[in-house]
Structure formats: structure tokens, C-alpha cells
Write a protein that binds this DNA or RNA. Structure first.
Lengths: 100, 100
DNA sequence: ACGTTAGTACGATGTTCGTCGTACTACAAG
DNA sequence: CTTGTAGTACGACGAACATCGTACTAACGT
């Protein structure tokens, strides 16, 4: 099984999180995940960009610690790390989601 | 008197605000303003960059609507638009400040 | 074994961003 | 009017970023 790197909760960087959330396409992903579409494969997001660009955005979100990705067969299931973000940066994700 | 453009509260863009706050130098400015150093001139911030770079960062913050700038003699007094940000994106500035 | 599906790796390209230095302007004080 | 102070304009530079297409890999289903 391939494994994917995730930063630990205590290692989350505000810089990385804010930069990740500053992109509209990445906020689209975060919003869909927050709206109950947890554990969706990358392909299910219907982003207006090519496949490799999509991969790029998911990676940015994962490396910033905003989402968790785990393999399931050929797909990757994506989950919002809402609890981790709330623990590290209280209120931040909530505020961004409310504003989107 | 020279005038400076500021976006209206209802025109604040989440994209612009998040991008503005994603830079560590700009967060330094915001933090100092939040810590009671309102109405300070740009020069009072002792930023680790050159003068023109400093101007650049203040402009990004102003154009995003994060700070208000008004001339007073040769100087510019800077103020955090905390109330406007709170009205448009509730909890966002608070969360970012708490995390810094 | 073979084809399908989901995502990655890689290289390229154009754009934006942070940085700088120099020259300039606006205002104030003497 | 001259000097000083605070910030701007402009041009340049390198780094980072979003985007793409093509070729590749890993897992599944038949």
C-alpha cells in the first residue's frame, strides 16, 4: 500500500494553511468536504482544471494539513481535518467556511 | 491632500484577505496594529525589508481592506479595520490573530 | 493476462510575488 | 528657500505558483 505524508497536528503552520485556503479552487474542495461529502475520491469534485493540476491542489491541501488522504484501491479518499485544524487554529476553518 | 483607495466593507474579498494574511511580514504588521499600536506610521514597524518592499506590503493590506491608511503630514497613519473585517468575515481576523 | 480506473511524475510555460535600489514627490520645519 | 522626513514610482530580478499534456504506475474487475 502506498502511503501519503501528513503533517502532525502540532506541526501545522499558519502560513501553509492560509496559503492553501487562499486559492479559490482549493476552497471549493474544502467546502465540498465540509458539506458532508467526506471520503470522496479526487475525481468526484468536478474541478475546472486538468487532472495533474487537480493532483497538485490536493497535494497542497494535504501538505498544509487541511485534508487527510488515504488510498482505497485506485482511488484516494479525502477527508477534512476539521478537528485537527480546530485544535491548532481555533475558529479559523469555521470562519473561512462561513465566509465562502 | 493625497487620498488612498480603500475597498468598502461589503466589497471585501476573501481571496484578497486570505492572501494578504498569508504573508508573515504582513501578519507582523497586523499583529502590531492589533496590539494597541494603532495610528502608527509605516516607518514605526521596523520590518526586516527595504523601504519600497515595506510600501508594497502596506499597499497589499490596504487594497485587501485589512488596514486603513490616511495621510498626516508626510506620514501615513495605519489602522486595523477590525470591525469591518468582523462584519464581513466574522471570526476570521480573531482566529488569525489568536494563531499568530 | 488484459483492459480500465485513479492518480502521479515530469517537464514546460506564463504569471504573480517578494525583494531590491534609485530616483522622485509631498509635506513640514527652520 | 532649503533641508529633512515619509512614503511612492519604476524597473529589474529570481523564486514560487497555477496550469497543461504526455507518459507512467498501482490497484481493481473480468
Amino acid at each position: 500500500m502506498r502511503t501519503l505524508e501528513h503533517p502532525r497536528t502540532e506541526d501545522l503552520q499558519l502560513d501553509a494553511v492560509l496559503s492553501a485556503l487562499a486559492d479559490p479552487i482549493r476552497r471549493t474542495i474544502v467546502r465540498q468536504l465540509a458539506d458532508g461529502h467526506a471520503d470522496q475520491a479526487c475525481i468526484a469534485f468536478a474541478l475546472p482544471v486538468g487532472k495533474s493540476t487537480s493532483t497538485h491542489h490536493f497535494r497542497v491541501l494535504r501538505e498544509a494539513g487541511v485534508i487527510e488522504q488515504r488510498y482505497q484501491g485506485t482511488a484516494i479518499l479525502n477527508t477534512l481535518r476539521a478537528a485537527d485544524l480546530e485544535a491548532r487554529f481555533p475558529g479559523l476553518l469555521t470562519a473561512v467556511l462561513a465566509a465562502t
